[in-house]
């Protein structure tokens, strides 16, 4: 853990544009080169499986293209974005709303492993003294820091009143950098906030990872698209909006039992889909 002040050369230059840059800034791990573009990916903690897949795909594609993924290490979208960036051998920064030592001691055990991996391929940072506990007002301030650190911000899934929308507001008003919003199904409460944000014209509707990559001056490999007529492609299209059980897949593809079974098994072996812990099947790419 090191302590940086805005006068230090290693201090992230993006934070210096804030009216009051965090001082000191605690850093645990290795901060990526400030020349590399950064993208914030935020969203709800209570995410749907569709949101999970999209967060994962975006983070992987952008990390692979060379962007640094910035998020807040909460459960839900944040964790998915961090781990997808790590999985793509990219770099990632977690901006915490509590002291680093406090997080290390009291943070959820489930994410301790993730935090350790982030320290190896990026950094955990916090503007709070080591032993500060996260409370209501430390997180909004953290959201500003997160926004300031990002060249562009993606909101994947946000209900009304979500902290992710506070981050988006900060990005829009204070940092004046673009906010991309992933649209979601109408009627799903976890997407209401983000859909309204698009409707009010506050953010850009995100239709592909390339849209963000272009803004950052990067190129992403084309996102997999299920368009072909083969049974494999139809299976992926069927699972695009979320996981499904074997019977639903069989009925959806209009195949007979053994054919559908063999297809599912083949796609599992090929790594295109994977069984979920609740006995269904989900797209992994």
């Amino acid at each position: 853990m090191i302590k940086l002040s805005p006068r230090d050369p290693e201090y992230p230059p993006r934070l210096r544009r804030l009216a009051r840059p965090p001082d000191p800034l605690w850093v645990w791990g290795q901060l990526p080169d400030p020349q590399d573009p950064t993208v914030g990916i935020v969203g709800t903690r209570r995410l749907t499986q569709y949101g999970q897949r999209i967060a994962r795909e975006l983070a992987m594609a952008l990390a692979r293209a060379g962007a640094v993924v910035v998020s807040g290490l909460a459960q839900g979208v944040d964790s998915v974005a961090h781990s997808a960036a790590l999985e793509a051998a990219g770099r990632t920064i977690a901006v915490l709303g509590e002291g680093l030592a406090y997080y290390d001691e009291h943070g959820a055990a489930r994410r301790r492993q993730l935090a350790m991996r982030i320290r190896k391929q990026g950094a955990l940072i916090s503007e709070w003294a080591l032993d500060v506990r996260g409370i209501e007002w430390t997180y909004p301030r953290r959201n500003l820091t997160l926004a300031a650190l990002s060249d562009a911000l993606i909101v994947v899934e946000a209900p009304e009143g979500s902290g992710a929308l506070i981050t988006a507001d900060r990005m829009r008003r204070d940092i004046r950098r673009p906010v991309f919003i992933v649209p979601g199904p109408l009627g799903a409460s976890t997407w209401e906030g983000s859909n309204r944000y698009i409707a009010e014209g506050k953010g850009t509707l995100l239709a592909s990872a390339q849209q963000v990559a272009s803004y950052l001056g990067l190129t992403v490999a084309a996102m997999p698209r299920a368009s072909g007529n083969g049974a494999g492609e139809r299976l992926l299209a069927l699972l695009a909006s979320g996981p499904a059980d074997a019977d639903t897949i069989t009925a959806g593809l209009g195949l007979d039992g053994p054919k559908a079974t063999t297809l599912i098994a083949e796609q599992v072996i090929a790594g295109a889909i994977a069984p979920t812990p609740d006995g269904r099947f989900a797209r992994v790419r």
Partner: peptide, 15 residues
């Protein structure tokens, strides 16, 4: 056969 194995794999689920 492959069909039998495929069904066993499908039913085995998450590992």
């Amino acid at each position: 056969s492959a069909d039998h194995l495929a069904l066993a794999l499908l039913l085995r689920g998450h590992t």
